[in-house]
Design a protein around this nucleic acid. Structure first.
Length: 619
DNA sequence: TTAGGGTTAG
């Protein structure tokens, strides 16, 4: 009767099958047993056995074992090298992979594909594409593997030109309708901003799978069509595809964009049922969605009560950003310090979130300290947005000249936002002269920026320079600059009710009007005095009060108060910043109606309770 | 032995 060993040697596929099983079971022990059997059976000199073992060791993450075996092989073929090369790439050791690649005397298509894929996977897209040209020059034609990788590289670089050339290759080689090549093509187009072309490529594929669906959903979110992404999510489910972790990441982020809490909660439940809650990306998306929908508590619960999730930089950054967005600077800082203790290496987004947190709370010294830490300890190059936080902190503290000098001396080109940040500080400190100078800088970059004209006029109004105010208004009329309308919205039972300033189109408009009038009178009894200084028009006081009373957030809030039971917290969203008067009014309402009111404006959240706001009037 | 899709800021 043949022994187990005889069987093993005669049936080479048995050896490779057991090895494959050892990889699937993550059993290094079984792989090592097979290794000893190979040595004692005198099979070490045959490439077949060693190659399979090197592969198994690499997949089990023990690269030193793989390399030792490779090193001792008396004969190696291209496949031996390829396996080692692939092993290094799978384990994130790109440098070692490049070394193996450079050493190889003979290379085949798989060698080239492996190294190109590795480079692109680790975001050295340019080098990956350069090697592709070299591969081509060496006489190797691109196959489906090559195209999948180089299209990913083009997508990473948002390089439509080279992406289209790769599309040409795909058509010529008949791979255009291959599921993987097609998905990569669609992704390349959509990452480069060509949503329609990407969608067409997906539509034309003869069969679809979850990845093709995800490509389309992600493309829609990335190109500013969150509603389309949600539609596509429903279509995908109706077609019988089961959403996976990546589907959830994209589709939850589209709920963040839309600020639709109800929809987001529904998808959260679906993610739980699908068993996707141990994936860091899904948790990051949920944290961001809940915090952007005004539910910091839910965001914190999802973050702190996660189970079986690997610690992840993006996830911690999402939670730091959530605290910052809600004005909880101290918690953001503490979380950052805990993150450092975990050994996670902060990136530029982490620092941006941290600096925003400081700037939203006026934590000036801490902000400056973190800016320094980013630069000197972490060696990260701050971008305009990081500098903007510093300008905000200096400007609000009244150090206007210092903030201006900071902009002039920074190594990156100033943008409209950084100048506008300084302009806002000018308004707070009523420095109309500097405001004029700064506004000129802004209008050089964008002459149609309505918010800057309004800020300048507001600054002049606060300095009581009425002639200058009317001059700005005249310029706006001449240049046909339209003020961006204020819009606020409130979600009730998954339905969004939106209100523009002065809007009378809502079906309950008349009732809202009456309710607001009564409410305002009530507030006046409690000491509220309308702050007509924020109204720019040349009107009399009564007209100004009327205009003030119809700001979009007041209309939305009145509607919400009328349509929700007593004691229920109200969440209002607004596209612009909340004005001073509305901020005061909402504080009074939180007392008079005994309600918790959460308002998200263009930059942050305000939590109003018992006459106080979480921003402590610093926004 | 080699291939495609995602998340954090504004």
């Amino acid at each position: 009767m043949a022994s187990f060993f005889d069987l093993l040697w005669s049936e080479s596929s048995l050896f490779s099958r057991i090895l494959k099983a050892s990889v699937q079971c993550r059993s290094l022990f079984v792989a090592q047993q097979l290794h000893s059997i190979m040595i004692t059976g005198g099979r070490s000199r045959f490439k077949f056995w060693s190659n399979h073992l090197i592969n198994a060791y690499a997949k089990l993450g023990v690269l030193n074992f793989a390399f030792n075996l490779f090193d001792r092989m008396p004969q190696r073929n291209v496949m031996s090298y390829n396996i080692l090369l692939g092993g290094y790439i799978q384990n994130g050791e790109l440098g070692a992979a490049v070394e193996v690649f450079n050493e190889m005397g003979e290379r085949n298509s798989a060698t080239w594909n492996a190294i190109i894929t590795g480079l692109i996977k680790f975001e050295d897209n340019e080098e990956g594409l350069r090697l592709f040209l070299k591969m081509h020059a060496c006489g190797f034609l691109p196959d489906a593997y090559t195209l999948g990788s180089i299209l990913r590289g083009c997508a990473g670089l948002k390089d439509l030109n080279r992406g289209k050339q790769a599309h040409g290759y795909a058509i010529r080689s008949g791979l255009e309708f291959d599921l993987i090549v097609g998905s990569s093509l669609a992704n390349m187009y959509m990452r480069s901003g060509c949503l329609r072309e990407g969608g067409n490529v997906i539509q034309l594929l003869p069969v679809h799978n979850v990845v093709a669906c995800n490509t389309l959903i992600a493309g829609l979110v990335q190109n500013g069509c969150p509603v389309g992404a949600l539609d596509q999510y429903n279509i995908m489910k109706m077609a019988g595809f089961r959403p996976d972790k990546i589907t959830f990441v994209s589709v939850i982020s589209s709920c963040s964009e839309l600020v639709t809490l109800g929809q987001g909660q529904k998808i959260h439940a679906e993610a739980i049922k699908a068993g996707a809650m141990s994936v860091a990306g899904v948790i990051s998306s949920l944290v961001s969605m809940y915090s952007r929908c005004g539910c910091l508590d839910y965001a914190a619960t999802v973050f702190w009560e996660k189970e079986g999730v690997q610690e992840d930089l993006v996830l911690w950054t999402a939670m730091i950003a959530a605290y910052g967005l809600h004005g909880r600077g101290q918690e953001a800082i503490e979380l950052f310090e805990r993150m450092e203790l975990q050994g996670l290496q902060a990136n530029d987004v982490t620092f941006l979130s941290l600096l925003y947190s400081c700037s939203h709370c006026g934590l000036r010294d801490k902000g400056l300290e973190f800016f320094d830490l980013m630069l000197h300890k972490y060696g990260l190059q701050p971008q305009v947005k990081h500098h903007t936080c510093i300008v905000d902190l200096l400007g609000r503290a009244g150090r206007l000249e210092e903030a201006e000098a900071f902009i002039q001396s920074m190594p990156v080109k100033p943008d409209v936002v950084i100048w506008k940040t300084l302009l806002s500080a000018c308004k707070i400190h009523k420095n109309a002269d500097m405001a004029e100078r700064i506004c000129e800088e802004i209008l050089k970059i964008d002459p149609q920026d309505s918010a800057s004209y309004v800020l300048l006029a507001n600054t002049q109004a606060s300095a009581k320079r009425w002639l200058d105010v009317s001059e700005v208004r005249k310029t706006m009329r001449e240049r046909m600059v339209k003020k961006e309308p204020g819009i606020s919205w409130f979600e009730k039972k998954n339905q969004v009710h939106s209100f523009a300033t002065g809007d009378q189109s809502h079906p309950q408009s008349e009732e809202i009007e009456l309710y607001l009038k009564k409410l305002t009178d009530e507030l006046k009894l409690h000491g509220y005095v309308p702050d007509t200084g924020v109204v720019l028009q040349d009107m009399d006081t009564e007209e100004k009060e009327f205009s003030l009373a119809h700001h979009s957030e007041k209309l939305a809030l009145a509607y919400a108060l009328m349509n929700t039971p007593d004691g229920v917290a109200i969440r209002i969203m607004k596209n612009l910043r909340v004005c001073d008067d509305c901020h005061v009014v909402i504080k009074y309402i939180s007392i008079v109606r005994n309600r918790e009111i959460i308002v998200r404006d263009a930059t942050r959240f305000h939590h109003f309770k018992n006459g106080h706001c979480s921003c402590r009037d610093y926004w």
